[in-house]
Design a protein around this nucleic acid. Sequence first.
DNA 1: ATGTAC
Length: 481
Amino acid sequence: MAEQPRIEASAEGPGRYRIAPTGDMRVPGVVFATEDPLPQAAGDQALAQVVNVAALPGIVGASYAMPDVHWGYGFPIGGVAATDVEAGGVVSPGGVGFDISCGVRLLAARCDRAELAPRLPAVMDSLGARIPRGAGRGAVWELSDSRLDRVLAEGARHAVDSGHGVARDLARCEDGGALTGAAAGGEVGRRARERGLGQLGSLGSGNHFLEVQEVDEVYDEAAAEAMGVRAGQVCVMIHCGSRGLGHQICTDHVRTMDRAMRRYGVRVADRQLAAVPVTSPEGEAYLRAMAAAANYARANRQLLSEAARRAFTGELGTERGGLDLVYDISHNVASLETHRVDGAPRRLCVHRKGATRALPPGHRDLPPELAEVGQPVLIPGTMGTASYLLTGVEGGGAWHSACHGAGRVRSRHGAAREIGGGRLRADLESRGIAVRGTTARGLAEEAPTAYKDIDAVVAATESAGLARRVARLVPLGVVKG
DNA sequence: ATGTAC
């Protein structure tokens, strides 16, 4: 176990802690938190990982940690790191995570809680029957090889073009629903493709979910209205990623980089930080494969949205059951962005792993209808707890990034030992939250006690000036992966 | 997160 690094309050403002550069660190560590900046889990090495990331070739600014930071593979989950592409900056699959483009989508229903209430059990049953979940195969849309190619290249756009959604959906997806520059060749290996064929339109497992929610509180009426949500409204939130395809791509490219690193003279503090220069053939190949997996994840959330729409319209009719996309955003991805560094614009490879992009009002990457309010930032809560809709703010730190969720503080095993799934289900149902899917063990592993308090994480994110609250959502029903 | 171990 590495020694816990020294961390101190930052002079740059409230809600910030700093790890001064020592040893091989090229930049400081910056941890955003209101109090107790140390991750709570016993043996959690997240801060040591913040230090390791600070030593990556080409890193600029700082090695950042969001308020929900916890221990991950190589990089901490809740970590943000940018490298200077033209100054030998590296790209690392560990800085994106195994679940490439894991993310969240929020849809707004055309009804309120009271209108839905009599039909909620039937809607939940229909969702339970329509939403593939759990490990392994199961898909809303079984793909042929050529269809998979289109999904990898065009993401949610191909799903919509094929009748799975409406054109307006794409305007409300980050990057218009498709990252450009996705792999056209062997960067996505045969095993990754095989795993992807049978999983498009599926939740997966762990903390992934589809929830029916109610808008519990609105903090900014104007922003909420621009985004298409209002108090009392029913919403659907989907949290999932690129399933086995993204996992296999990460595995394959970590192995390739682990072998290639020496050739580029890249030395890292932890083998799990395997990295190569962004401009190297291996770096470019990873970014193309990552984009393909990101497109798969976006199409995955699009297909699940369609399944949810069928469940809602089936029970509520085509008018009341309509689901309008609020936004779709990833929290596990690297992107090439231009930012000012020491006063000059630089091309950066920004790794966000368990961190959400949070563009401020007026940013040119926003669609016109969101230009005034900023980028919607979707923060999924833990089962049975609140979720949040935030928006990016001017001057947001960490290259315009925010948190991504509550952040685990107890292992799956530890969580399951603490509370039985049966009791948890009874607790949820006694609070009027319908649960469909998963096993007792699956429920117990995701117990709210295994996570930080989402309200506190979001408050810390806001007070650190990373993003601000637009609305809070609470669950009415959950379909667990 | 993950055909929860190559």
